[in-house]
Each structure stands twice: as C-alpha cells, then as structure tokens.
Amino acid sequence: MTTLAILTVDLSDNDEGVFTIEALASTSARHHAAALAEAQQVLDWAWDAFPHTHGPADEGGEWDHDLQVVDEDGGWHAVTLTLTGTAEFARAFAQAFDFGRDDDA
C-alpha cells in the first residue's frame, strides 16, 4: 500500500457506474519532479494491475487516463492526472493508494 504525498485525490462516480479519480498538484519548480513521479507511480500501478483493459469505457475499456502538465504564472506547475474506470478499478486504486479507508470506496 502506498500513500500519495504530493497529489491530492478526489473520487467521484456517475449514474452509469463510471468512476473518476482526479489526482492534482500545483507545485513550485522545486517539487514539480516529485509530483510527476507520483503521477507516473499511479500510471505504473494502473498498467500493472489492469494491463489489458485500458481504453474508453464506451469502447469496453476498464480504465482510461488523461495527464495534463501546465506551467503556471510565477514558476508554478500544475499536474492533473484523471483516471476513469469501473467500480473494481476504483476499489483497487483505493486499496493500493490507501485512499478512502474511512469510506467504503
């Protein structure tokens, strides 16, 4: 089990059973590499745990992702990793990253 130290995570779902996991960080240049490393750690986990099911839900995929990296004013950097997936994917994420232990995620 891993705890994310830099990325802030939010989990939501919709009426169609698709879960969205947003992992966000806005950091100074000094911490930017660490934020990117955490995002990569999450992606590495997803590829390892669900290696053959990547793709959009409407095409039968169990999980998909979008990574955005933006340079902001004042030398800040934003990292946004958005994962969408099934309930099983969301539960596995919550267990792997010690997220939502107080909830029944």
Rank of each mutant, 00 (worst) to 15 (best):
F99W: 13
A49Q: 06
G17L: 05
F93I: 07
N14Y: 02
G17A: 09
A33P: 06
A90D: 01
L11F: 10
T8Y: 07
A29W: 06
T8V: 07
G61C: 08
E22C: 04
A90S: 14
D98M: 07
L7W: 12
L36T: 10
I21H: 13
F99Q: 10
T82N: 05
H65L: 03
D71N: 06
A35F: 11
N14P: 03
F19L: 00
A35K: 01
G60H: 04
A90E: 03
G75L: 05
R101E: 14
T27P: 07
R91G: 02
F93Y: 15
H65N: 13
H77W: 10
E72W: 00
D15C: 01
F97H: 10
D15R: 04
T84I: 01
E16T: 04
G74P: 00
V42G: 11
A49Y: 00
H31S: 11
D48Q: 15
A96D: 10
F89G: 01
T27Y: 05
D98N: 14
V18I: 15
F89H: 05
G60Y: 01
E59W: 04
H77I: 09
S28H: 10
D73M: 04
A29V: 03
E88T: 08
A23S: 15
G75M: 05
Q41D: 11
A57F: 04
L43R: 15
A96G: 08
H31K: 09
G75I: 02
G61I: 07
D10H: 12
G100S: 05
D13E: 13
D64R: 02
A35L: 09
A90K: 04
G100W: 01
V9S: 08
E22P: 00
